[in-house]
Simulated assay, not measured.
Amino acid sequence: MPTHPSSHIQQAREELAGRLREIRKDAGISGRELAARCGWSESKSSRIENAKAPPSDADIKAWCRACAADDQVPDLIAANRQSADAHVQWRRLQRSGLRRLQESTGDLYQQTKAFRVYVSDVIPGFLQTPGYAAALLSSIADFRETPDDVSDAVAARMRRNAVLSNGARRFSFVLEESVLRYRPCSVETMAAQLGHLLGVMDLHNVAVGIVPFSTQWIMWPMPTFTIFDTTRVHADTLDAAVPLTQPTQVELYARAFDRLSQGAARGAAARSLIAGALASLN
C-alpha cells in the first residue's frame, strides 16, 4: 500500500497498523505464530503491521481472535473503515471540486435524526445563506486549487440543508462568538447572514448556543465537528472532513460537545451577541 498524499489519512493507516502490532505483542506471540493461527503467510502479517497492505474486516477479526483481544474488534474495524472513507473523500475532492463533496453527505443527512454541531470559525453549513456559502466555498476552492464549481456547490449545499426544515429532526449548535465576528464576505452579505441566523433560532427543532468571548473557558475552542446521532463524527482538518466512527471516538466528541455547551449563552443572551455583531458591521 503506497504512502497516501494526505498526511492525515496516512497517519490513520499507520496508527491502525501500530495498534494491531501492539495487540500481537501484548499477546506475547511472534508474527510467525500469528500467521499460523490466522492461516495466512508471515509476510501478510508483516505487511499489515507496517501499513503496507490494508487489512480487511475479516483480517482484523482473525488477528484479534488469535491474540484473545476480541473486545477491540469494533474500534479497529471502525478505524479501518474511516481511513478508507477519508481516502475516497480526498480523491473525490481533488478530482472534481466541491459540488460532489456537498452531495456525498446527502444520504447521511437524510438518515440522521439528531445533529450536534460545534464551530469556532465560520457559520455552520446548515445555517449559511447562499451569499455567505458562495464566499466561503470560493475561498476554499482557491486555496485547495480545485475545479471552480462554486455555484453548483452552493446549490447542492442549499438542497442538502433543506433537512433543517424537517421538524422530526433535531439540531443543536454551539458557536464560538468569533463565528459572528469573522468576515469571509462583504458587509452586506455578513449582515444578511447574521439576520438569517436570528430567524433560524425561531425554529422549534433548532437550538443555538453561543460561547461569549467574556466566558471563562470550560473547554478550549476546537476545530469544527458534527456528530450524527450517536454513530458518526465528521471532524474538520485542512484537507478533509474526516469521518470518525470508532465508538470511543464518538463518545469522546459527545463529551466535548456537552462540555462546550455548558459555556454557551442561549435565548435572549445569544440574540444579544448576534445583535452586537450586527451593530459592529457599521
Score class of each variant (00 low, 15 high):
residue 182 Y to F: 14
residue 79 A to Q: 14
residue 122 V to I: 14
residue 106 G to Q: 14
residue 118 Y to V: 02
residue 75 D to H: 07
residue 89 Q to I: 15
residue 164 L to W: 09
residue 76 L to Q: 06
residue 116 R to S: 03
residue 71 D to L: 01
residue 150 V to D: 04
residue 123 I to K: 06
residue 159 R to T: 12
residue 101 L to R: 14
residue 175 L to G: 05
residue 132 Y to T: 03
residue 73 V to H: 02
residue 101 L to H: 14
residue 159 R to N: 11
residue 121 D to Q: 13
residue 71 D to T: 08
residue 160 R to H: 06
residue 101 L to S: 09
residue 121 D to R: 11
residue 186 S to K: 13
residue 181 R to A: 10
residue 127 L to S: 05
residue 119 V to E: 14
residue 152 D to V: 00
residue 141 A to P: 02
residue 146 T to V: 15
residue 119 V to P: 00
residue 112 T to V: 05
residue 136 L to W: 08
residue 124 P to I: 06
residue 77 I to K: 05
residue 96 S to W: 11
residue 139 S to T: 12
residue 120 S to V: 03
residue 138 S to G: 12
residue 160 R to N: 07
residue 147 P to D: 06
residue 143 F to C: 00
residue 167 G to H: 11
residue 137 L to D: 03
residue 149 D to H: 05
residue 107 D to I: 10
residue 177 E to L: 04
residue 150 V to K: 02
residue 121 D to M: 10
residue 80 N to Q: 15
residue 128 Q to P: 01
residue 72 Q to F: 03
residue 73 V to S: 01
residue 74 P to N: 09
residue 166 N to P: 01
residue 148 D to E: 10
residue 155 A to C: 00
residue 80 N to D: 12
residue 100 R to C: 03
residue 148 D to N: 09
residue 164 L to F: 13
residue 71 D to I: 01
residue 157 R to P: 01
residue 126 F to D: 10
